[in-house]
């Protein structure tokens, strides 16, 4: 079975380490916050200017001046700090965020990522995505392995305009966990019940399959 959105978030959460500052994008990445392992403390960075994002507010805690990067009302966690957008992106661009998790349309074997623009469709903008991928060393991209029509999203070369060049080293799809090294995807883990053959068939870019590819456990 392909991983559910929740299982993808659970798998990403295993990469968290105690003391990590983490930026989570919109969608599946946001769910990662629900699966922080016991005994581990992480601080969530929201690029509009909040380090230490807490849970959503209760009805009587709602405050129009407290929002996250998705423009949702939030609270500040104990020990949080709040700052300007320039300060926020100094943290991001300066490589101070330990882990960034974000979605994408396509990733290629050179570590290029396309996530913001589909020619012919209305372009809303890149928001902070280009800064995040340029600034972070440790990025996990979460996306489905192939489109609804079965077209691979792990490509030899991205077909869409890029968000960042050569900056992605880890990809978690609904079928597999892969790393990108020296111009190739390396298959590190497969989703429970998913065969190596299926992953090979759905990966358009160069894929290296090690002798042993463990199945993820949940």
């Amino acid at each position: 079975m392909a991983l559910s959105r929740e299982q993808m978030a659970m798998r990403v959460a295993r990469e968290l380490q105690d003391g990590f500052y983490v930026n989570l994008g919109i969608g599946i990445p946001t769910l990662v916050a629900n699966y922080v392992p016991d005994g581990i403390d992480v601080m969530l960075q929201s690029e509009n200017g909040l380090l230490g994002m807490g849970p959503f507010p209760t009805e009587d805690q709602i405050d129009a001046d407290m929002i996250n990067a998705g423009k949702q009302t939030v609270t500040a966690a104990t020990g949080a700090s709040i700052f300007s957008s320039a300060e926020s992106f100094a943290m991001i661009r300066g490589g101070h965020v330990d882990l960034t998790v974000l979605g994408a349309f396509e990733v290629d074997q050179q570590g290029n990522i396309a996530s913001w623009m589909i020619p012919g469709k209305l372009i809303k903008g890149m928001g902070g995505a280009m800064d995040l991928v340029a600034g972070a060393d440790n990025i996990i991209v979460t996306m489905t392995h192939a489109s609804k029509h079965g077209e691979s999203k792990l490509l030899e070369e991205c077909s869409l305009p890029l968000t960042g060049a050569g900056c992605i080293k880890k990809v978690l799809t609904d079928l597999a966990y892969l790393e990108i090294e020296d111009g190739a995807f390396i298959l590190r883990e497969r989703a429970p019940g998913i065969s190596v053959e299926e992953i090979v068939a759905k990966t358009a870019g160069k894929l290296i399959v090690p002798d042993h590819v463990p199945e993820m456990q949940f």
Binding site: P55, F56, P57, T58, I62, I67, G70, Q72
Partner: peptide, 12 residues
């Protein structure tokens, strides 16, 4: 007025 764009709450 301080309009809220995405009103998100949890049960208290």
């Amino acid at each position: 007025e301080k309009r809220i764009e995405q009103r998100t709450v949890r049960q208290g």
